Deep mutational scan, measured.
Amino acid sequence: MGFKLLSKLLVYLTASIMAIASPLAFSVDSSGEYPTVSEIPVGEVRLYQIADGVWSHIATQSFDGAVYPSNGLIVRDGDELLLIDTAWGAKNTAALLAEIEKQIGLPVTRAVSTHFHDDRVGGVDVLRAAGVATYASPSTRRLAEVEGNEIPTHSLEGLSSSGDAVRFGPVELFYPGAAHSTDNLIVYVPSASVLYGGCAIYELSRTSAGNVADADLAEWPTSIERIQQHYPEAQFVIPGHGLPGGLDLLKHTTNVVKAHTNRSVVE
Rank of each mutant, 00 (worst) to 15 (best):
E44R: 12
S113F: 09
A215E: 09
L10A: 08
I151C: 08
P239S: 03
H260A: 08
Y175V: 03
F3G: 07
K251P: 07
H180L: 02
L9S: 07
C199R: 01
G240V: 03
G198W: 04
G242R: 02
L106R: 12
F174V: 04
A133I: 11
S191M: 07
S70F: 02
T182V: 09
H57M: 01
P239C: 01
T207N: 14
A133H: 11
S160N: 15
G53S: 11
L47S: 01
P23I: 13
L24G: 08
S113Y: 04
N149V: 13
T222N: 10
P176L: 02
Y202R: 11
P232W: 13
I100C: 03
L96A: 09
V11S: 09
Y231H: 04
G131F: 05
R206S: 14
D183M: 00
R206A: 08
E157F: 11
N255D: 05
P23R: 07
S264C: 05
A15Q: 15
R167V: 06
E219H: 15
A94N: 14
E203P: 13
L173N: 03
Q61M: 10
T86Y: 03
C199A: 00
A87N: 04
L82E: 03
P244M: 10
Q103M: 08
E44Q: 12
H241V: 00
V45Q: 03
P69G: 10
E80Y: 14
N184E: 01
L156I: 06
E80V: 14
V67P: 08
T109Y: 08
E225F: 11
R120Q: 03
E145W: 11
S193W: 09
G163T: 07
S31C: 11
S62K: 14
P107Y: 15
S223C: 03
S181G: 01
Y48K: 12
A209F: 13
Y68F: 11
G210T: 10
A25C: 11
A218E: 11
G198E: 03
G242N: 03
I17T: 05
L250G: 01
D118C: 14
L250Q: 00
F63D: 09
R142P: 02
S191Q: 07
G43A: 13
P35N: 06
S62M: 12
S30P: 13
Y175N: 05
K8Q: 07
I201Q: 02
F3P: 04
N255K: 15
G72N: 01
L159A: 02
T140C: 03
L24I: 10
V54W: 02
L247H: 15
V124N: 09
G177H: 01
L127G: 01
L13V: 09
V166Q: 13
L156V: 11
S30G: 11
S22A: 11
E39Y: 15
G122R: 12
V171A: 07
L13N: 15
A87H: 00
I74P: 02
L13G: 10
E99H: 14
K102F: 05
P107T: 14
V146N: 08
I100L: 12
P190I: 05
I201A: 04
H180P: 00
S27K: 09
A136T: 04
V257K: 02
L106E: 13
D79I: 12
T36H: 07
I58M: 15
P35M: 07
G89V: 03
D118Y: 08
S208M: 09
L159D: 02
I84R: 00
Y175A: 02
V257Y: 03
I224W: 01
G72D: 03
G197R: 01
A95F: 11
G43W: 06
G32W: 09
L13D: 04
V54T: 11
L97S: 02
E225Q: 07
E150P: 15
P69K: 06
S161D: 15
R263T: 07
D29T: 10
L249C: 01
V189F: 06
V11F: 08
P239Y: 01
G53V: 14
E157M: 15
Y175Q: 02
V171R: 02
G245V: 02
Q61G: 13
P244H: 08
G158N: 15
V237N: 01
S7H: 13
L96N: 00
Q228D: 05
E172K: 04
V28C: 07
P221N: 09
T207W: 09
G158K: 13
Y202C: 04
Q235L: 09
S223F: 02
F63Q: 05
A111H: 14
L83V: 13
G240L: 03
V194G: 02
D64M: 14
T182S: 08
Q61F: 09
M1Y: 04
D216W: 11
E150Y: 12
R110G: 12
K258M: 13
N149P: 06
H117V: 00
V171D: 02
I227A: 11
S27E: 07
F168E: 03
W220Y: 15
D183Y: 03
S30A: 11
M18L: 05
L156A: 03
G210W: 04
L250N: 01
T14E: 10
C199H: 01
T36E: 11
E233Q: 13
I58G: 03
S70K: 02
V266S: 14
V45T: 09
D214F: 11
C199N: 00
T222E: 13
A178N: 15
Q61S: 14
V28N: 15
I224N: 08
G240W: 03
A234M: 13
A178W: 09
T36N: 06
A19Y: 11
F63E: 14
G240Y: 03
D214A: 09
N255R: 10
